[in-house]
Design a protein around this nucleic acid. Structure first.
Lengths: 209, 209
DNA sequence: GGCGTAAAAGGTACTAATTCCTATCGAAAC
DNA sequence: GTTTCGATAGGAATTAGTACCTTTTACGCC
């Protein structure tokens, strides 16, 4: 769960991220510069030496690092699985022995996908209003959008016009001159906007159901 | 970033989550039962005492707790923000001043929603096959399902029959005797299953787009 | 009520992490 | 070339966290 090498790798990573050496990080944290010395990570008798929780707290404080970021360093260093859940094919799911009585997958060896929003920095949520995308999005549904993601034909997107209109649509065609947007709900018209009127397009990556 | 009270609150929470007392957790971890005593969290001279990193690692190991979960306990104890992203209404989004040029929301004070799968314990992912729910789910889409969640009328669900069939449908009606399932795609028939043939129903909570 | 078990307070002994010190090495500054 | 500074190794001293012990309290069980 939490290993000796992992902790030290995270401390090294924390130092590097702030352009510091191990001793520099210790000094900045108000600790003795030798506290994080490599030569002291294993005691003379071969036992591993762990930094104290207080030292770690001071290092986080000195570098203005929050716990989430430190977690990232911890798990990156160990190449440990991060925010993943097992992914099962609908066909597989029909075969026997894959689920317990409560409907949870059992055992190991499943494919895994990253949970939505694992890179929390680049997503935010929008609450859908209107039914132009019904039944895909219903009024009140919440979608996670990623303004940074590349958009392709067939993607569902949020488009903001220079006029201040915000649309949830499916991208039908995108050319240098114009953007064609499709409403899933046939009661609503499709839209074609000249690129000059598009402030930005953000891809919808996940939708609540 | 990481406080004394937070650490101890997380240890208490870790113990509670496993049905243990502070001393019970210490014992299970191979430590002295008094290691986590409340009376020892503040030294005689008033200075705070921090548990050693090694003790924490042992406690995580003994309770088969991964770092992510412990993180949750840490941040819960401090009432700190967890895995949240800002939530904006589609109408709000049209007004000026809310977004930067790249399409990211700016400023503070947004509502926030929890990211999908924050309780990773209770969800897994399924890859959709077939087009009975088209256009809501397209072939190859991935859905996050929560077998533990309560299902209501109108929810999109994965149903597994005792015969081994796995269906992605919308729940039309659920009575004591039977479950009525609706296909969004009119080309596919609706289904009605007697409850005796339903192995389990899991609600689809998020869908990739 | 008596008894056994567990939780937790309070103290002492031990062990491990930090500090302080010295020394070596390498890079940058003079 | 010499000096200066930071980084790191290695060791001694100090300090802090844990282990061990005892006592008190609480709870369930006979």
């Amino acid at each position: 769960m939490l290993g000796h090498g992992q902790i030290w790798a995270a401390i090294d990573a924390l130092a590097a991220k702030n352009g510091l050496s191990a001793s520099g990080l210790a000094r900045r944290s108000g600790l003795d510069p030798t506290t994080f010395n490599r030569s002291k990570r294993i005691a003379a008798d071969g036992r591993p030496r762990w930094p104290s929780t207080e030292s770690i707290a001071k290092a986080l404080d000195a570098t203005a690092t929050n716990l989430d970021s430190f977690m990232g360093l911890l798990t990156d260093g160990a190449a440990a699985p991060r925010r993943h859940v097992p992914l099962i094919g609908l066909a597989q799911a029909g075969e026997g022995g894959y689920f317990d009585d409560a409907g949870f997958p059992v055992g190991q060896g499943w494919d895994e996908i990253e949970l939505p929003g694992a890179d929390r920095e680049n997503v935010y949520a929008l609450e859908i209003a209107g039914d132009s995308m019904s039944p895909v999005y219903r009024d009140g549904d919440v979608v996670l959008v990623s303004p940074g993601a590349a958009v392709r034909r067939g993607d569902r997107v949020i488009v903001r016009t220079t006029g201040g209109e915000v649309l949830a649509k499916e991208l039908a065609r995108s050319t240098a001159k114009q953007v064609e947007l499709r409403s899933i709900n046939p009661a609503h018209p499709d839209r074609t906007l000249p690129t000059s009127e598009v402030a930005w397009i953000a891809r919808i990556v996940w939708a609540s159901q």
